[in-house]
């Protein structure tokens, strides 16, 4: 015997807004750090909660001794459309970084130290990844005061409950 199954009704689900983002920053180059900061700041500007989790070389963005010296990667960066050998010349990375920083200043994007302060003041929480901190032999002393804590991956996921995780 066959029975006719009722066709299930399709429910229209309204798209929900994003309430929270958790952004992982894994690269220590200028082009690795800026997108994360811009996205975190942009989230706050729209009333979205945001956490930043710095791991591996991304830690450079919150290290007192390095965060003023973040540079554009000029070697192995096809986006620059320049021969790799040129990119490897001494001082070339600094030159490109200066040019980009000047362009960004024109459109009101702050340098990294000021940007870190801006996002922290905006309510973004900054964390350092424990595994990377241990690997590089660092402590809280090495980080800028805006960093709230050194946390494990598990703690990161716990804090990221209900949020969109973005990896940069």
């Amino acid at each position: 015997m066959t029975t006719v199954l009722e066709e299930p009704k399709l429910e229209v689900v309204e798209p929900k807004t994003i309430e929270k983002v958790s952004i992982v920053v894994s690269k220590g180059s200028l082009e690795g750090v800026y997108p994360a900061l811009i996205m975190a700041n942009g989230a706050r500007m729209d009333g979205i909660e945001a956490d930043l989790f710095f791991t591996f070389f991304g830690l450079d963005a919150i290290r007192k001794d390095r965060y003023e010296k973040i540079k554009v990667a000029t070697v192995g960066n096809p986006g620059l459309h320049m021969p790799t050998m040129l990119g490897a010349l001494p001082g070339f990375s600094s030159l490109v970084t200066r040019m980009m920083t000047r362009q960004m200043e024109k459109i009101d994007i702050p340098p990294i130290p000021e940007f870190i302060e801006l996002v922290a003041d905006s309510g973004v929480r900054l964390y350092a990844c424990k595994a990377s901190v241990d690997m590089f032999g660092l402590t809280m002393e090495d980080f800028v005061p805006q960093v709230e804590d050194i946390i494990s991956v598990g703690e990161f996921y716990a804090k990221a409950a209900g949020s969109q995780v973005i990896f940069t």
Partner: peptide
Amino acid sequence: PVKELYQLFPKG
């Protein structure tokens, strides 16, 4: 200052 801006207007 930025901190106070977010206290005054929490949703952006």
